[in-house]
Design a protein around this nucleic acid. Structure first.
Lengths: 229, 229
DNA sequence: ACAAATATAATAGTATTACTATCATTAATC
DNA sequence: GATTAATGATAGTAATACTATTATATTTGT
């Protein structure tokens, strides 16, 4: 059975992990391990033990653990873009398209059988807890030049262009979208760990509440009459 | 001459650095060094060399470098709260108060002579680049129990309560405020490093544009008729 | 089916990091 | 002037983030 694989920027890895068994084990197990331990406590040595391989072998796939994280999170944004594509292609009205995007971003992430070796629930927790660490580093500019944030930028750009269609006079489309993409994850983190910083609760309702919050922010801002240019 | 000092949560340090010469040198130089090197490359050893002291001496003030970062950023939020206090106390109208808060958050940070050994420009760059690392760690819950995020939570709570006064029916005050506090710094980071993710430009105008963006988001959201409960 | 190429495993080694411990010395305080 | 406390000097350790080397599988082309 043919497993779907994303074509990711090939600067993200040294050897493409999607195409070998060891590579797939690296992706699969690193997700679980980073989720469990957190990125700081995660090491290639621990991962090697987990998959009965060696540090040296893992280094043939990824230059270092930071790049592995960037890879995993790039995979996530590719997955988001793929889902947005699927669920908005049939929708004509740009406002409805935009709502669908927000729903996809806010919804609970569940196992997607399209991608065998990826545990989307663990990956989402990684995105929530580690996303910012991909770019909050002195090396951002180099990573960016290599195009490693392409997935995130692409999602951001597509949603921003919907906003441009809905209201060409709204002057903060890109900022609004990047804010929403990031806050969607951040608010879930706060709900779990710093509840006084969020209006969401740590129960099942939080995904619907999150959607309402995002919809409120986005539509109120772009529909407003008084656009501060 | 009496230097003003904040009363910070005493779990933030082992020995209060504000009250000794070495402590002040630690604060002063760690700010410059973290700003220069980034948090990952920053070490107590490098700091010790910088201030002609030793690693061991620094460890007597801070348990580890992460807690030092939490300290510096707690200082920042205390400073913000202090400025908000000063500049809003004379303002009666809650909407105007709220605008003043947003202005303080968005404005360019400049040296404040009230605090001798603090370089506010460097500190602001640290907040922009490292803020999220204070809570995105497996130890959040412990740090939170010790009250180490009190400054941030306090600023968030005060602004949220202004929103509650302005529109008691708006159901996302806390989320809106935490989003704004964080995005205020994030958008400046994007302007410098990932320009396609922001509508701000990397020039002098960015602080005014940032203010407009924040004002737009906040006031559009809370003034809207259709409140999604 | 066999040689050549390639991927992986096994092992070792290094510089740096994030500490901890000990003891001598200097400075502040009573 | 004696006691206490803060700092400096020095040493040491376990773990981390790699790099290098060689042997052994595994895959691939002919």
């Amino acid at each position: 059975m043919p497993t779907l694989a994303f074509k990711l920027n090939d600067h993200l890895y040294l050897r493409d992990p999607q195409h070998t068994q060891l590579g797939q084990k690296i992706i699969h197990s690193s997700m679980l391990l980073i989720d469990q331990l957190g990125f700081e406590q995660f090491t290639f040595k621990k991962l090697a033990e987990e998959i009965d391989s060696t540090e040296a072998s893992i280094y043939r796939y990824f230059e270092n653990k930071h790049r592995l994280l960037v890879y995993l999170i790039a995979w996530y944004w590719n997955w988001m873009e793929y889902r947005i594509e699927i669920f908005t292609s049939a929708v004509a009205d740009p406002k409805e398209k935009l709502k669908t995007c927000l729903r996809i971003l806010a919804e609970e992430k569940k196992y997607d059988p399209t991608f065998e070796f990826v545990n989307e629930e663990a990956l989402h927790r990684i995105v929530i807890a580690e996303l910012d660490k991909t770019y909050l580093t002195k090396g951002v500019d180099d990573l960016n030049k290599e195009g490693l944030f392409g997935g995130f930028k692409s999602v951001c750009g597509k949603i921003a262009s919907l906003i441009h269609v809905i209201n060409p006079n709204y002057p903060f489309a890109e900022s609004l979208v990047s804010t929403v993409l990031i806050t969607a994850n951040q608010q879930l983190f706060f709900a779990s760990h710093l509840p006084s910083l969020t209006s969401l609760e740590a129960n099942e309702s939080r995904f619907n509440r999150l959607y309402s919050f995002l919809e409120n922010i986005v539509f109120c801002s772009i529909n407003a009459e008084n656009n501060y240019a």
